[in-house]
């Protein structure tokens, strides 16, 4: 077992060493390492893997964002898919109706979704637990229904021919080119999530999650921080939505944003580990890969996913991230402590 884990430990040590130079160095190195991924995938002769990776990266953005408000701040939100929808629709409409290039439409969509995040976050200031879940569920579904009945927002035919991003004559219209775009966004997203969570704000979030009264007694402005958590997660959702909308073939429809999608997103966060810093990433990758490889079993696929979710919550509430923490990190910590105390003794 130790032999198997050795390369991973080696990798972790390597990145930690880099981090000592500057916090951002391991990220840059990882980014550079991941750049040639499409070429490698392409060499297997199956370009579909690149498309798969792109979809996963968008879900990573979504999951990481959701994990911030749900896992770290402990706010039960089940309307996140509504924010995703707002990001997608805003970016598409700006691009189609007003001819905005992606580079203007996407930031605008992110901002608009952030504002929507304030609206969705306002109930959170006063509500907790199940009440908050209900409010966010209602809001998320209302967004979808609004899209479904409003012709200007696409209605039942959806919004089509959303233009892909382009820089001069370089158009991001195939899997590989889009990969660079999405991968950069996801990387930035993950890095920012780490920064936020390791900062005072992140600690405030976790304090609120653990015990709201104790947190407020400590001088943490609970309503403001709760709202901030919602807004941050909304920004992620907006970015993910815009990236999803502009991905070729550039088509979105209101039933891309139903409760089923929300439940899938929940499953990703739960499986990866709610509140684990890598939770969103791990969950998105594993769930989507399992989903893609079991497509022929569409008959029982949703049932299996639902069952996994129930069993995870009951038997493994910390998700895979929790398992990693427990077996790899904690054991190592204990081992290091023992070595240290042996040395001292």
């Amino acid at each position: 077992m130790n032999l198997l884990l050795a390369p991973f430990r080696g990798l972790v040590d390597f990145f930690q060493a880099l981090a000592r130079i500057h916090r951002i160095v391991p990220w840059l190195v990882a980014y550079v390492f991941l750049l040639p991924l499409p070429e490698i995938l392409s060499a297997t002769g199956n370009d579909y893997y690149i498309y798969l990776t792109n979809r996963i990266l968008i879900f990573i953005l979504l999951s990481v964002g959701l994990n911030i408000v749900k896992g770290f701040c402990g706010q039960v939100t089940v309307g996140h898919i509504g924010l995703y929808a707002i990001g997608a629709v805003t970016s598409s409409l700006l691009a189609i109706n007003y001819g905005w290039p992606f580079w203007a439409a996407m930031p605008a969509a992110v901002v608009v979704t952030g504002l929507a995040g304030i609206i969705i976050g306002l109930p959170s200031v006063r509500l907790e637990g199940a009440y908050l879940a209900l409010a966010t569920l209602g809001l998320g579904e209302s967004v979808r229904i609004m899209i479904a009945v409003t012709p200007a927002l696409g209605s039942s035919t959806g919004i089509m021919l959303i233009p892909p991003p382009q820089v001069g004559s370089f158009v991001f219209d195939d899997f590989q080119k889009y990969y660079y775009l999405v991968m950069t966004a996801a990387m930035i997203g993950i890095y920012l999530s780490f920064s936020i969570l390791r900062s005072a704000t992140g600690r405030a979030f976790m304090a609120i999650r653990e015990d709201v009264i104790a947190a407020s007694v400590h001088g943490i402005n609970v309503p403001a921080n709760k709202l901030l958590a919602f807004v941050i997660s909304a920004l992620y959702a907006g970015a993910a939505g815009a990236l999803f909308a502009h991905m070729p073939p550039g088509f979105i429809h209101h039933n891309n944003f139903t409760i089923i999608e929300m439940v899938t997103l929940l499953l990703m966060v739960v499986m990866g580990g709610i509140g684990h810093i890598w939770g969103g990433v791990i969950g998105a990758i594993i769930v989507y890969i399992i989903y893609d490889n079991t497509l022929e079993f569409y008959h029982i696929q949703p049932l299996t996913f639902g069952l996994i979710m129930v069993l995870l919550v009951v038997f493994m509430p910390q998700g895979i991230g929790g398992v990693i923490d427990r077996y790899l990190v904690t054991k190592r910590f204990v081992k290091l402590r023992e070595e240290k105390s042996d040395g001292a003794a």
Binding site: V76, L307, M309, V310
Partner: peptide, 20 residues
């Protein structure tokens, strides 16, 4: 935080998918 509040809600969603 994974129990009673959030855990139950997530479990409820999962159970609704299973039952359906």
């Amino acid at each position: 935080y994974t129990v009673a509040g959030m855990g139950m809600i997530i479990c409820g969603f999962g159970m609704s998918v299973v039952l359906q």
